[in-house]
């Protein structure tokens, strides 16, 4: 009888944990439900379910928030930044992973400084520098800003990844008279796929969701990233639920869908990045 009781208790316990966990999703569920209701309905019954599949809010949002342009901009910036960060980061990581001396220790210290500096510390001077260089409100400007923000993490990430790769392959190539560049390009770089995949998740998350940099650095609507489009559409005063909720759903949908597909990989990748 006792194992039976224990099993019932265990199933009951697991069911309660699942219920509590799902309750954490209530705000996401609320956001989706509200996006199908008119402002008048929400004012009257704040928590009711939508009466019908009313799509008027979405039609209005898609028409007025410049959504697809924002998606394209965010995608383009993400891709460019990923390529730059992966290239510069892995190149710098190669000597850092293979040599230990005063120089590499100094470089690691400088990279750590970049990693530890909160963006708000550098935002004033970066604004001034970008203005002097004519980089405000331009794609190159925002790409450089995001590249700089992600680069320190990339260097650390690749350094620990390359350190774990056996040196034998490289030594064989060196015997065949390959130079440092050839060894990096033909031997090391092709092995970095898994690290680059995880890194590109970080970059995508940061470029898609970051608010401060594009808010301060971009000013013309056709260059906005998705989040800035959402912010400009919803506004800051007298917020209307029939604009807020569809814009919120549209703004988070791409990453939520991506998360549903690559859930395991994203959680373990982001966690591994943190633990290292």
């Amino acid at each position: 009888m006792r194992p039976m009781i224990r099993r019932v208790v265990s199933i009951f316990g697991q069911a309660s944990v699942v219920v509590v966990t799902l309750a954490m999703l209530a705000p996401v569920f609320y956001m989706i439900m509200m996006s199908f209701r008119t402002s008048a309905e929400i004012a009257e019954e704040p928590l009711a379910m939508p009466q019908a599949l009313y799509l008027g809010n979405y039609a209005n949002a898609l028409e007025n928030m410049n959504y697809w342009q924002g998606v394209l901009n965010s995608l383009g910036i993400t891709l460019t930044v990923t390529v730059l960060v992966a290239l510069l980061g892995s190149m710098a990581a190669y000597p850092l992973a293979r040599r230990t001396n005063r120089f590499t220790r100094g470089v690691i210290l400088i990279v750590a400084l970049g990693l530890a500096t909160p963006p708000f510390v550098t935002i004033t001077p970066i604004y001034v520098i970008f203005r002097n260089l004519g980089l405000l409100d331009s794609y190159p400007g925002i790409v450089i800003a995001f590249t700089a923000l992600n680069l320190p993490l990339a260097v650390f990430f690749y350094t620990s990844f390359i350190s774990a790769i056996p040196k034998e392959l490289e030594e064989a190539a060196r015997l065949d008279n390959c130079g440092d560049w050839q060894v990096y390009w033909y031997i090391v770089r092709p092995l970095l796929g898994p690290a680059t995949a995880t890194l590109s998740l970080f970059v995508t998350l940061m470029v898609w969701n970051d608010f401060t940099y594009p808010l301060l650095l971009l000013s013309s609507p056709e260059k906005f990233t998705v989040m800035i489009s959402v912010y400009r559409f919803v506004g800051n005063l007298n917020i209307q639920p029939d604009m807020l909720f569809p814009a919120a759903v549209l703004g988070s949908a791409p990453l939520l869908v991506l998360f549903m597909i690559f859930q395991r990989r994203i959680v373990s990748g982001v966690t591994a990045g943190a633990v290292k």
Partner: peptide, 10 residues
């Protein structure tokens, strides 16, 4: 983990 996929703005 899902909420961490959303942006601060939203």
């Amino acid at each position: 983990f899902t909420p961490a996929m959303m942006s601060f703005v939203i």
